[in-house]
Design a protein around this nucleic acid. Sequence first.
RNA 1: GCCCGAGUGGCGGAAUUGGUAGACGCGCACGACUCAAAAUCGUGUAUCGAAAGAUGUGUGGGUUCGAUUCCCACCUCGGGCACCA
Length: 968
Amino acid sequence: MKTGKYDHQKIEKKWQKEWAKTKRYKTTEKKGKKKCYVLDMFPYPSGEGLHVGHPRGYIGTDIYSRFKKMQGYNVLHPMGWDAFGLPAEQYAIKHKVHPEIAVKKNVKRYKEQLSIIGFNYDWERELSTTDPAFYKWTQWTFLKMLEKGLAYQSYEPINWCPSCQTGLANEDLEGGKCERCGSDVEQKPMRQWVLKITNYADRMLADLDGLDWPHSVKESQKNWIGRSEGAEFEFKLVAHSKELEQALTVFTTRADTLFGVTYVVLAPEHELIVQLQSSIQNWTDVQNYITEVKNKTEIERTDATKEKTGVELKGITAVNPANGEAVPVWIADYVLHHYGTGAVMAVPAHDERDFAFAKKFGLVIKKVVARETGIKKENEEFRNGGAAVVFDPISQKYAVALHTDGKPLLFAGGVDAGEHVHDGIVREVKEESGLYDFKHVEWIETSHAHYFNTAKKVNRVARAECLLIILNSTKTKSINLEEHEKFTLGWMSADEIKSWWLSHNEEDGFLHYIRFLDESVARAIELEYDKTSDARKFISTAFTDHGILENSGEFTGSTSTEAREKITKAFGKKKVTYKLKDWVFSRQRYWGEPIPVIHCLACGVVPVPEKELPVLLPKVKSYEPSGTGESPLATIDKWVNVKCPKCKSPAKRETNTMPQWAGSSWYYLRYIDPKNKKALVDKKKEKYWSPVDMYVGGTEHATRHLIYARFWHKFLYDIKVVHRLEPFMRLQNQGMILASDGRKMSKRWGNVINPDDIVKNYGADTLRVYEMFMGPFDQSIAWNTDSIMGARRFIEKVWRLQYNVSKNKKQKTKNTELEKLLHKTIKKVTEDIETMQFNTAISSMMIVVNEMEKADEVTVSDFKLCIQLLAPFAPHVTEAIWSNLGNKKSIHISEWPTFDKKKIVDTVFTLVVQINGKVRAEMTVSIDATEEEVKQLVFADPRIEQWTKGKEVQKTFYVKGKLLSIVL
RNA sequence: GCCCGAGUGGCGGAAUUGGUAGACGCGCACGACUCAAAAUCGUGUAUCGAAAGAUGUGUGGGUUCGAUUCCCACCUCGGGCACCA
């Protein structure tokens, strides 16, 4: 063989042409073979073209699908275009071309850019969501949803983007702003089509468990669906001492706090308010407030840090179903109309928001849950007691009972018979500390601690009141002598007390009890001491943890968890609520699938008959938004005015279009059977190819595309179009490639690296290897053009190797060390591709190539195995070498190498000798050596002797094939 | 605030049923080849130290013969949710 320079341009052009000619990548459907469906999230062809970040995921799926093909699978690996929606329309408006033409142009450019990278897509299955033959089935599915009652019209206010001139779904917002343009969205009441995705919330949640998806994506979906279990309670309403016919239903997750309700709050949009008008004494104020709230943007309204506002509905009270107490009724915008029942029972003692509201408006705060520490045990002995935090405002220090070992404790104790618990604590403090000059005594909280008394060997639960005592002076009287032996009066700052307890993790008996008290101290210390006020006011916060009930009638003493069940059962009913909202499905824009319904004055909403699908998007002169909240389609009289399919009287077409996410919710099914005119997908074909085995895309789709597609798929399952509950079995995220400055690649920053340039200068194979080698596939990483040389050098090494190898063609003797390494590499690369750890796969191939370069003799068969491993990564150069070696058929249909178990077994290993945990020597030992033999060998070694001399060996640990640890 | 995930050389990163930390690559230094340069090849490259040796995987504790890996607390960064009752 003649030595040749590695000319990537020539090689890549030649083989891409050859593959196209021989239809190398046409999907095979050989009988009796297993299938593998490998899919990329199809791109939105923008006008900017691709940068080097875009192909990263495509390279991953390309490697995976080539690998699976070589393993003998029938592989489906298609590509298409997600081309409806606002970006294409905005681009078209800006460049004054029709979106259809703009999309065609952009697709052409994308396809060119993709093709030079050498992907193995089956282009015969290419599809576009904008193709009428495709969107016919998007419309068809919508009609099925309409038929099943899952698509409905609503007039509720929705998110409206004033800049994009369209309504948006909840998923299209980012922090209350339009995800596309960043404008503040408004709440605009208008007619819209909505899909009942909430009907599927539970199934989507439950089926997440069976998916091989990244943990973070599953978490995002769980958060997005936002299921919460709680209860509904009905509060009867009273005005002028008479019960009204309307009642108020509230939703809560904290039924255990029902006895702590001191008022109730309605969202300002609540429909009950108008109904109650005649009973409301301050109607003008109420109306003013509602108007005020209406004028706020969504962001202003949902800002949790702003001051709470609200108005009381004077003249009306609500009756607590648990204890019959009448409480005031308020309206406030911190209560959201669209969550739960749009009304809450306010428990200021145990909810931050209610607390803030109650503080501001001077409402009653009633504590019904006490803090609980430790774990509840059997046969607990009950103790009643308390403790006090004693504060000296002059020195800003706390008085503690200082144990001789330095431990600071609270002044605490039990209560004498017949004595009030507060008096008991005060008495104890006086006796133990000698302090007596108190300025202020305040109750902070009640707590329950479960602990084991080590002295008496009994389980105890201590109910303890925690008091705050503020001193006038630090003068003392005589101190109880018995206590004085162990304790002295000490003064410590909050930080000193905290740090002592943080560094001493004591758990037994009384100490555990003390530790609970310490938590009360910590809490008391956290209370802000208001120096400016003569009233010496301590400002508290709401206690929102679970605990033990107080002041709750027969439920007093129960845990929150128990009480929640019991109280729900006694006074209300269980209820589940979701954060997920129904999918706002209409857009007031041109470039989308027309919603296939007709509005008839007589018949109402009439679906377009199935045989008239698709409802084609008409050609128009102006597709710019009308600005009236109506779609541009509304201006095309010819298209709009039709006859009602039912009664044949004049009727009008629906002029709203579908959102961008419609087509992408099911496109993966169409690749299976892209030309089918009779069905969305052929049942048999669907049964063979579904589900997608490997789906690769960015994390930005975690809560939109991937939620919508799962919903759409489950619907198709219900109407028996598909046979699997989930569309994508395995999902892999690819990380973004950032510019070398660490920012996103963007024209705006002028930091875009174009893949065409890299392919031209370094080659597609180098680009592919570099992008896979730069770091873990799913992590974001900055582009570094310097580092790309490493990948290029590696490929050149492989290229040069073919000439060294061919010289040895006749050589027969095997280099067993090299062979062993090669077989270990086959194992590693096979496993790494399966788990998409491409960086370590390439690393191990680099190692074997380096060794082959160093070796004098490399057999052709060993080298062949090596380039077969590389073939999915660098398809062009390996194909060229494969052909140079005299193979007639493509390397990409050759059989994937398998490793020989016998060939990777080591005969010797490196034993590591540790002495007292430190590595002191290494030695080569036969793999068959017994522990005794190893020990003999080790102790005879002079390097070991120098450490063991004169010392006694206490223990040894032997890990077979790894190390010997000696303890002296 | 709540829920996830992650912190390792000059840089990208490797190694976790607890067993040699830093594979592979980039960069850098020196050497070979060259009139010279580039390319290529070779050697070295965690820190401190002349060396022996010591230290070292965000910080502080703990378990263990042995911890990047397990436990507790904290710090920082990234992501999701957020007045969601």
